[in-house]
């Protein structure tokens, strides 16, 4: 049973089909990568899947539920989470507070008005757990804006994990990360599939080839290829699309 299904998902911006009749089935527990040249529609697809954009036509199903017209926060509550290419963390909060507010959402404490948030022990405990998992515990009291770029990236992913999602969309999670750290991040992402399903947009082909179970190739809003890393590597259409570009599939 696929965890996410789309049917002829389309969105039109000013006459242009940014995503053009995309029908996709994402398998549970696997790591699927979405690749394609700039402007292929990958981030737009993520925006559609998470409810940030309303599609012009088509449908989206999460497990058996149709989520096509749901707002972002409702889709997140159903179990889809996302990290962003441009970091979206809470800069003026400490690392601890960042994760705590995320956990709080998942545990539905957001509407409590008068209890001090330090008293919510269940939230506190879970926050510490997550900080351990992403290995930011030593930096717990630092303000997010004072972290190194790499740590900010980790915090970004931590925020998207705090809600215990079933499906995680990662938008270029290694962007800006130093070469020596990329492998660690890649391995971390790969290990995530033990607990959840991952949909990954990534430009670094080594990583994509190394950790993906399946690769979907987009070009001008459409899916032009879909298969295992081996199949994609040898696919002629894909090679043509990348020919002359800066991407190397070897």
């Amino acid at each position: 049973m696929p965890i996410l299904t789309t049917q002829d998902l389309t969105i039109v911006f000013g006459g242009l089909k940014a995503v053009d009749e995309v029908s996709l089935k994402i398998e549970k527990g696997k790591l699927t990568s979405v690749i394609g040249p700039n402007g292929a529609g990958k981030t737009t697809l993520f925006n559609l899947l998470t409810g940030f954009y309303k599609p012009s036509s088509g449908k989206i199903f999460f497990n058996v539920n149709e989520i096509t017209s749901l707002p972002v926060h409702k889709i997140v509550k159903l179990g889809i989470s996302r990290s962003f290419q441009i970091l979206k963390i809470f800069n003026d909060m400490t690392v601890f507070e960042n994760i705590r507010v995320a956990v709080q959402a998942q545990m539905n404490h957001g509407m409590e008005f008068f209890v001090s948030r330090d008293r919510l022990t269940d939230v506190w405990r879970r926050t510490e757990e997550i900080l351990e998992e992403i290995r930011l515990t030593p930096k717990v009291h630092l303000k997010a804006k004072n972290l190194s770029y790499g740590d900010k990236r980790i915090l970004e992913i931590g925020l998207s994990l705090a809600g215990n999602p079933h499906l995680l969309l990662l938008d270029e999670p290694t962007s800006g990360v130093g070469a020596h750290e990329k492998e660690g991040v890649a391995r971390f992402i790969h290990d995530l599939t033990k607990k959840l399903t991952v949909l990954l947009v990534e430009h670094n082909m080594d990583i994509v080839m190394g950790i993906s179970d399946r690769i979907v190739v987009m070009h001008q809003g459409r899916i032009i290829a879909d298969g295992s890393p081996e199949e994609i590597k040898n696919n002629d259409t894909v090679k043509e699309v990348y020919l002359g570009g800066k991407y190397c599939l070897a």
């Binding site: 996302r82 963390i89 809470f90 507010v101 809600g163």
Partner: peptide, 11 residues
Amino acid sequence: QNELRAKYLGY
């Protein structure tokens, strides 16, 4: 501090 991220946390 980041309304979009807050939405994406489920708020």
